[in-house]
Computed example of a mutant assay.
Amino acid sequence: MTACVPAAEAPTSPPPAEVVQPVRTAPAARPSPSRSAVFTFDGELEQGGWMRGTVPPGTVEARLGEERLAFDDEGRFFAAFDRDSPGTMTLAARLADGRTIESPLAIAPRGWDIEHVDVARSPGGASEAFMRRRQPELDAIWTARLKETGSEGWKQDFAWPVKGRISGRFGSQRVYRGEPGSYHSGLDIAPGNGAPYVAPADGVVVLVADDFSLEGKLLIIDHGQGLNSAFLHSSRLYVREGERVRQGQHIGDVGASGRATGPHLHWSLKWRNARLDPLLFTGPMR
């Protein structure tokens, strides 16, 4: 006797992704329960910029490029674009019914302040003695930025932490005989030594450092969804690690601690590994 063996079924390919343009909405708009299967967003779609939006209904997983997105019970998410972001990126959502939605984004390029210097960079790099002190500081900063506190400050319109002369702009860079140096990763504000500064949005304090080699008195606040603020060179700090702070709360005083040529507040913003321009969060200083 011979057994009857059914023919093997040919493997089925997943359905192709649906390419759907995202829809820009008013910043204060709330997601509608009956919204259609599209991404909605508002924000600044340019290098160093950001977006807040909602995923399509039924989304079980969403990404911006290769970066997986977190979203809340209403489907709201935050994402951002590095200083050197490519000109095109894609939002993608995998839905519970098996469909995939892809939404292309055009990321506007920026004209950075680039200074070409006809001198060579100093050879050798950091000394071993310096790195013995520096590496634990870098590890503490890295660990602090990975903390997830559940803060919802990312949903707010950011305020200026302090107002004064802008003495250094995000993204500026020197090129030494064709070799690029590190670009300026934040915004420098010089209101005068000892001027109080405040939290630009709600958050949780994830690092308070009293005497880091470069940053001096350093404060990092998590705003949730991978977005965090760092404040460098303070003369005094008024909060502790684990403390929840509110937008507008006095958190520190401007100073010149660490490696600083004069008193100023260096404010930097990061989303995951992307460095962002604080000026695109606040708008012009008034």
Rank of each mutant, 00 (worst) to 15 (best):
M1I: 01
T2S: 08
A3E: 11
C4V: 15
A8C: 07
E9Y: 10
S13L: 15
S13R: 15
P15L: 12
P16M: 11
V19I: 15
V19E: 12
Q21P: 02
P22T: 11
V23G: 07
A28F: 06
A29H: 06
R30H: 06
S32D: 15
S36W: 02
A37D: 13
V38Y: 07
T40H: 11
D42P: 00
D42Y: 10
L45W: 09
E46H: 10
Q47E: 12
Q47D: 06
G48F: 05
R52W: 04
R52L: 14
G53A: 14
G53Q: 13
V55A: 14
G58Y: 09
V60N: 07
E61A: 15
E61G: 14
A62P: 04
L64R: 01
L64K: 01
G65Y: 07
A70P: 02
F71A: 08
D73K: 11
E74M: 12
F78S: 03
F78N: 02
A80T: 11
D82Y: 01
S85L: 05
P86C: 12
P86K: 07
T88V: 14
A92K: 12
R94I: 01
L95C: 09
G98N: 10
T100E: 04
E102H: 01
E102R: 11
L105M: 05
A106P: 00
P109F: 11
G111W: 02
I114A: 06
E115P: 02
D118H: 08
V119P: 01
R121K: 07
S122R: 08
S122M: 08
S127N: 03
S127L: 03
E128T: 11
A129G: 06
A129F: 03
A129N: 05
F130Y: 15
M131G: 01
R134F: 14
L138S: 06
L138M: 12
L138D: 10
D139F: 05
A144Y: 04
R145P: 00
K147G: 03
K147R: 15
E148A: 14
T149Y: 13
G150E: 01
F158T: 10
A159G: 07
P161R: 02
V162S: 06
K163P: 00
R165I: 09
S172Q: 13
Q173L: 09
R174Q: 04
V175F: 04
Y176I: 04
G178N: 02
S182Q: 12
G186V: 09
G186S: 08
D188L: 13
I189W: 04
G192K: 08
G192H: 07
N193Q: 11
V198M: 02
A201M: 05
V205M: 13
D211P: 03
E215T: 00
K217P: 10
I220A: 03
I220D: 00
H223Q: 03
H223T: 03
G224E: 08
G224R: 11
Q225P: 01
N228M: 02
F231K: 15
F231W: 13
H233F: 05
S235Y: 01
R236Q: 13
R236G: 08
Y238N: 00
V239I: 11
R244K: 15
V245C: 05
Q247W: 04
G248K: 11
Q249K: 15
H250K: 01
I251Y: 14
D253R: 12
V254G: 08
G255T: 00
R259G: 01
A260H: 03
A260W: 02
W267V: 05
L269V: 14
W271R: 08
W271I: 11
A274Y: 02
D277S: 14
L279M: 13
L280V: 00
P284I: 06
M285W: 05
M285N: 09
R286D: 06
